[in-house]
Amino acid sequence: MEPRPLGGRVRAIRRISFALIWTMLAIPIQALMLLLPGHAKVAFARIYNRVLCRLIGIRVQVVGEQARGGSVLFLSNHTSWLDILVLGGTLEACFVAKAEVGQWPLVRTIARMGRTVFVSRKRGTTGRESDEIRARLAGGDSLILFPEGTSNDGTRTLPFRSAFLGAAAGARLVQPVSIVYDRLGGLPACRRDRPLFAWYGDMDIGSHFWRIARRSGARATVLLHEAVDPALYADRKDLTQRVEAVVAAGASQLRQNRVPVPLSL
């Protein structure tokens, strides 16, 4: 399964070059969209991510139906920065990201063009940031949140933090999402393959992007579970536990290469 040295390098250079060219073309287009009223800015952000997935060689399979109508809070497990591209190309929604992302060169520009909500996760700012998320949801925006609070090696789902769901009451619906990178070289990915896609710890994005771009036949599967009204649950801890169980079970289906089936809370 190791890439051919020369073929892998040529593939990576081609993919990274096309990805950079597409990004440079997309930034001024999205900047214009942000000045215009309506849904165009959300639709183009989705197109940008979808095309970028194709350019870097990741095919995306979607199982289940996205909740429509706006003001939806999507809650997903988190493995890698690749999740941003995959989910951003699948769902018509903006991301909630840690404040550090807003300081990374180029990435911060792309994130701001996508109308990302940045959160610092400091005690003193939690209330203000929750208010911003509620305001975006009340305004009709749908948001994507990673309640684990960090990425991991892709072999498990970390516990969800109920504090991150403090703004869930402002959502019309909450939809659990499971995402797993389940194909590599056109074959089912096994446990040893998952760290290739995972981005965590002190990994740098440049070398990780290079490793991904060298490989062929990669696929991500997004499993969209049944959406629910958060008002039906006693409190955010109850909702957090139930969403975590569904997301983890869905991710387990995908890691075991079983036929994925959307689950209900």
Rank of each mutant, 00 (worst) to 15 (best):
L82M: 15
W81C: 09
W81F: 15
G57I: 13
I84D: 12
C94G: 05
V60Y: 06
E92Y: 00
E65I: 00
S80I: 14
G70I: 02
L87A: 03
Q66G: 10
W81T: 08
V60K: 07
S80E: 14
G69P: 05
L85M: 13
H78R: 07
C94Y: 05
S80V: 15
C94H: 12
L85K: 02
H78V: 05
C53T: 10
D83H: 11
V72A: 05
Q66R: 12
L55A: 10
V60F: 06
L73R: 05
Q66C: 07
G88P: 09
A93I: 12
V62E: 05
L82P: 14
L91K: 02
F95K: 07
W81G: 12
G64F: 00
L87P: 04
L52I: 08
G89I: 08
V63A: 01
G64H: 01
V86M: 11
Q66N: 02
V86K: 11
S76C: 12
W81L: 13
I84W: 11
A67S: 06
R54H: 15
L87T: 03
N77R: 07
G69Q: 07
F74L: 08
L75H: 09
V62D: 04
E92V: 00
L75S: 10
V60C: 05
G88Y: 10
C53F: 06
S71R: 10
R68Y: 00
R54L: 14
L85H: 08
G89H: 10
L85S: 07
L91M: 02
L87M: 11
R59L: 10
L75I: 10
V62L: 04
R54M: 14
L75P: 11
A93T: 12
T90V: 12
T79S: 15
I58F: 12
F95H: 08
R68W: 00
V63R: 03
T90M: 03
C94P: 00
G57Y: 13
V63F: 01
I56F: 14
Q61W: 01
V63S: 01
T79A: 15
V63E: 05
S71G: 13
S71E: 04
Q61V: 11
F74Q: 04
A93F: 13
G57S: 12
